[in-house]
Design a protein around this nucleic acid. Sequence first.
DNA 1: CTGAAAGCGCTTACAG
DNA 2: CTGAAAGCGCTTACAG
Lengths: 335, 335
Amino acid sequence: MGKKVSITDIAKKAGVSIASVSYVMNGIEKEKRVSEEVANKIRETAALLNYQPNHIAKSLKQGSTKTIGLVVADISNSFFGDMAKAIEEEASKHAYTVIFGNSNEDFSKSRNLVNTLMSRQVDGLIVTPVQGGESKIQKLSNKMPLVFVDRYIENESINYVILDNYAASYDAVEQLYNKGFRKTAIVGYDSDMMHIQERFRGYREAMKRFNPDVETLVGTVSYQSIEEDIANTLDAMLQQEQAVDSIVFATNTLTIAGLQHLRKRRIKIQEDLSVIGFDGNVAFDFFSFPFTYVKQPVYEMGKKAVEILINKMNGKNDFEQVKFKHEMVDSIPVK
Amino acid sequence: MGKKVSITDIAKKAGVSIASVSYVMNGIEKEKRVSEEVANKIRETAALLNYQPNHIAKSLKQGSTKTIGLVVADISNSFFGDMAKAIEEEASKHAYTVIFGNSNEDFSKSRNLVNTLMSRQVDGLIVTPVQGGESKIQKLSNKMPLVFVDRYIENESINYVILDNYAASYDAVEQLYNKGFRKTAIVGYDSDMMHIQERFRGYREAMKRFNPDVETLVGTVSYQSIEEDIANTLDAMLQQEQAVDSIVFATNTLTIAGLQHLRKRRIKIQEDLSVIGFDGNVAFDFFSFPFTYVKQPVYEMGKKAVEILINKMNGKNDFEQVKFKHEMVDSIPVK
DNA sequence: CTGAAAGCGCTTACAG
DNA sequence: CTGAAAGCGCTTACAG
């Protein structure tokens, strides 16, 4: 694979000190007053030997790797895919590289990933926290610049970038109300995590406001058995004596899974049952029925997370907690 | 942020040599015959000081980082999202970490990413090559274990994992033929890259075999202006005197963009025009029309790429060139 | 069984 | 203006 060439090799070959090589390679030959002659010789020799700096050695010496660790729940989910893209793009602009891992919503996987990334001396972390590890991940925040995305843990000394989840589901219920739907249910995960709880809270508050006489109906599904649980939950909602006339799905994955089940049951969306989904998806643009969904500004959220992280890494002390506003989108059905 | 503790700190505190600490931390105290007593003391001290090994220092010394660099065209594209997931999962099983970047189909971005990853001393690279950089990226293969995914460059001394693209589009034309469609066109990128050229070749060969009297019609679109180009291409195909009766879209993105345009033109898919798409997509399951697409075994492809790369990194000398077979999938339309 | 020491490839005060 | 040297946190032959 060819022996690596180091600045020592260049120094030897050019007959100069390794310090001078280091200065020239870092473009600080002017400040360090290396003569133009020596600098040129060094540049020539470096080119000749095809020198490639070793970032690892530099990192060790400098105590900084210019690397960001990213832990998402699932990179193959388009929400996190878009976010990862934005994060990499923004990080790259600031000369940071991104290492990533998938937690698959599993806390022990998430913890292992965080440990791995820390042992690799990332300068900061962007994490989607998962159920079960709240206290552990919180401690992390004292040891390392950290920004939560998509979800968060209640604590004033933690950075996060999230959607205003309360407002989003409140708005969803309101939209349904304006279209004449009263018996609205919500389907989310069986999770204590704030993003889910806030979506439930927005739903409950909106129901209280708009449909005070209607009993609220919160269906929960386990991430471990989405298909099965959503089938049971939806069937129950539709079969009860006071069947619901509208449903808000609280996440991307649940929206898709839910619609698939409703389709299997031959329920006509927006005729038999009105539905509001969460997060954009290419699929939504192809529905044969009009469809409304809560859209998160994923790209801006990813960029913001990097921005906050970089501030923290640069020593900024106060915390930033940013809530983005959703947008309610009506897709136009395929004719 | 708390001072980092090193093995030197542990050695001092425990009153032993740093060598012993290193042995114990690596679990090789038995082979190195460190006494059980000393080993225990070291473990206790490490726990007490909350020692976290510095992987960077280890990497520098060992000349291996246990890191894989991944350069994809676009992580937010579900094809690459799924692949990245598979790659991270498989790498993680082998104690490798993944650094990634998006080239956005831009060669200079791709080259910069590769350089960055190399300066970070990745042990190997998995790359989706892009148009324009064939010769440069090829040289890389001599310097570093490398596996191409999705696309490749013709060269017997390069590893790759791709789809049998020829067979896939050949099959697409054949399927259309069997359903009675004769005037089949294909739409792909304006690219010299092998994966596109092979898809065109499969189309041409199949047309020669099944519809020898029909003129072949290959529409090309630039990645830079997909929407505009696909609109023009499709409109031309439909308006010419001998309008096509069926179209094969040669990629994921083109399938979506193409269908969106056809929809805008109020063309009824599978009634006015038969279509075969490329790559799976959640959207396909929700179409109101029956839809057939070429499905790539993305997950297996990602895993295979890691497997090959690990073999190479472990010193295996011969090259592996793997072509996976597609599957032709008929989605059942929403009623 | 244990320890002192060299060295991975850099950066950077310091002396001249 | 330039060079010798220490040190980042590890691993690992080598000597005892």
